[in-house]
Computed example of a mutant assay.
Amino acid sequence: MTNSVLRIDASARRTGSVSRDLSDRIIARLGGDASVVHRDLADGLPLIDEAWIGANFTPAPDRTEAQRATLELSDTLIAEIEAAGTIVIGTPIYNFGVPAALKAWVDLVARAGVTFTYTESGPVGLLSGKRAIVAIASGGTRVGSEIDFAAGYLRHVLGFIGIHEVDFVTADQLMIDAEGTLKSAHDQVAGLAIAA
């Protein structure tokens, strides 16, 4: 596993964001010798549309220049994952799920034949050998509860593209006990296993 980190921030807030603070702490825990590529989703990402789908399902040798341009951002986002040994995703839970920008990122990187493939026994992810650490914050939703549609989704979609080593650092239900929740989250960061 390479000592490079892809950091993805999904919070719409650039200041005062708990998930961003936790990502800062995780990056520091991983060590100062890691090279970090930062992808901030606060400005949003384009949603996939008919032109994107048409380009994606056209065989690469047959794509027009316009279709290649349409897939350029997706190719860049996938290259960032391919180059990283560890992916750190900082995200809040918005209305019981992930922010729209993070869902847009997933749509742009989950590509058949590129990051996963279908086989007779089911889909197989093509981005194996990587680790993901997800820092997730919520105001009232308990992570892992029946109303949390963020954590399980992220674990599944990361596994779908081949990333099965996924750790969570959770700061959930901040509106109920902010002090206790933050202490627990900081303790979780301190307890993260670090590769020798």
Rank of each mutant, 00 (worst) to 15 (best):
Ser4Trp: 06
Ser4Tyr: 08
Val5Gln: 02
Ile8Lys: 05
Ile8Thr: 05
Ile8Asp: 00
Asp9Phe: 03
Ser11Thr: 00
Ser11Lys: 04
Arg13Asn: 13
Thr15Gln: 15
Val18Gly: 01
Ser19Val: 01
Asp21Arg: 13
Leu22Asn: 02
Leu22His: 06
Leu22Ile: 08
Ala28Phe: 07
Ala28Cys: 05
Arg29Phe: 11
Leu30Thr: 03
Leu30Pro: 02
Gly31Tyr: 12
Gly32Ser: 15
Gly32Cys: 03
Ala34Asp: 00
Ala34Leu: 09
Ala34Asn: 14
Val37Gly: 08
Arg39Met: 10
Asp40Phe: 07
Ala42Phe: 04
Asp43Met: 05
Pro46Gln: 13
Asp49Leu: 01
Trp52Met: 00
Ile53Phe: 14
Gly54Asn: 13
Ala55Pro: 04
Phe57Lys: 05
Ala60Val: 11
Pro61His: 14
Pro61Gln: 14
Asp62Gly: 01
Asp62Gln: 14
Arg63Ile: 06
Arg63Thr: 01
Arg63Asp: 06
Thr64Val: 08
Arg68Lys: 13
Arg68His: 15
Arg68Gly: 12
Thr70Met: 07
Leu71Asp: 00
Glu72Met: 12
Asp75Asn: 15
Asp75Tyr: 05
Thr76Arg: 15
Leu77Arg: 00
Ile78Cys: 09
Ile81Arg: 03
Ile81Gln: 01
Glu82Thr: 12
Ala83Pro: 02
Thr86Met: 07
Ile87His: 01
Ile87Met: 11
Val88Leu: 09
Ile89Lys: 04
Gly90Arg: 07
Thr91Met: 11
Pro92His: 10
Ile93Trp: 10
Asn95Gln: 12
Asn95Ser: 14
Gly97Val: 05
Ala100Phe: 09
Ala100Pro: 00
Ala101Met: 10
Leu102Thr: 03
Leu102Ser: 07
Ala104Met: 05
Ala104His: 08
Trp105His: 04
Trp105Ile: 05
